[in-house]
Design a protein around this nucleic acid. Sequence first.
DNA 1: CCTTGTGAAGCTGTTCACAGCC
DNA 2: GGCTGTGAACAGCTTCACAAGG
Lengths: 227, 227
Amino acid sequence: MTILRTPLADGSARGIPDATVARLPVYLRALNALTEQGVSTCSSNDLAENAGVNPAKLRKDLSYLGSYGTRGVGYDVEYLRYQIAREIGQTQDWDVVIVGVGNLGSALSAYQGFSTRGIRVAALVDADPKRVGTTISGITVSSLDDLPAIVEERAISIGIIATPGTAAQEVADRLVAAGVTSILNFAPALVQVPDGVDVRKVDLSIELQILAYHEQRKAGNDKVVGA
Amino acid sequence: MTILRTPLADGSARGIPDATVARLPVYLRALNALTEQGVSTCSSNDLAENAGVNPAKLRKDLSYLGSYGTRGVGYDVEYLRYQIAREIGQTQDWDVVIVGVGNLGSALSAYQGFSTRGIRVAALVDADPKRVGTTISGITVSSLDDLPAIVEERAISIGIIATPGTAAQEVADRLVAAGVTSILNFAPALVQVPDGVDVRKVDLSIELQILAYHEQRKAGNDKVVGA
DNA sequence: CCTTGTGAAGCTGTTCACAGCC
DNA sequence: GGCTGTGAACAGCTTCACAAGG
């Protein structure tokens, strides 16, 4: 649950706020879009608009990385893209393992958006013997028991939990035991992990429940947004 | 992108912070778990532990809804569950429409976690004529052109975008035109909507990119967590 | 005694507004 | 003149610590 901001005990003062880290991939995408449009230089206004954020926030975010812009001119799209990519580790590909190849796990294994963002689904794993050995998105499903071997062999540090909630904790334990140090949890359950392991949670139901809350409020009040 | 906090121009002072709203479904799930364990009363400590939050935060969150606990005793699980459910509109079911029945849309349509949380996938829609008419998870896929009719007939106010990024804005426009006022966007693209429409975004790649950033930092520093 | 409910303090993140530089 | 980079003000969220009350 707690994403630790590594304090960097040594001198190299580099504590990028979590909120900023979460937006850097968005900026990267916006820069890629600009490149495709043939734009080679952009202002913080241009980029902010493409990314859907306030220009001041964008500039502040970028200031945590360094001074990569030119006053009076703006940012060089390609140069900035490279700097952000380097900062968030996108100059290399990251191999991930997906645990659970039900509907969601299968969909994730086929997700096109990963490959263009430096994420490579390197292995699929399932506890169900009936699924082990089948091929999904061109990858043969392995047994959960083979997790340690797979993680070590492919140097995987990121695991995705796409199992039912009841299996989530056990899967998390096994991932950690196998050497995984970052987990993306899609299961609707809380997972406990030791210090040094990051967990992020994506809860599909909760997102909809939040929208439902706002819908209910809209229905309750006549006017929604005061002009 | 901006989730508006409805200001409630009238007297009924009820401005629940966004951060709290996002946690209420988590508390609901924790309460359900406690009920299944046969627990009928719990302290803020018990519940907070089950929900993975700090007890003080839990109490403050609940205080926005009212005073539903008993000092010296704790909370009645069933009573609190009902109060939260009522607050976030979980006493009724919400019909949603999913646009795009590729891998992700199909997986979502089959997702078990929705039904138990008051979300009902009422309709599936796709722009591809080859998919229209097929049946997925027991629902016949309709044409994108039928969206207005479907939304009106089933009184749908929440739509899910599960298309490629390139189609997202057009789909959002059509959803809004059809009368949808809340959108959950899984496409890796920014969508613009008029005031009064809520959009939440779930970006699968970005979650992994954030984890990759932290992984990179761990690899860079020897010690991760200073004891 | 116990646990809730809550002012107050502290922290993180956002926005403003302008100095600095091209 | 224009745009970046940033201190400072602001807003929102979290945590503390304790009064209130069963």
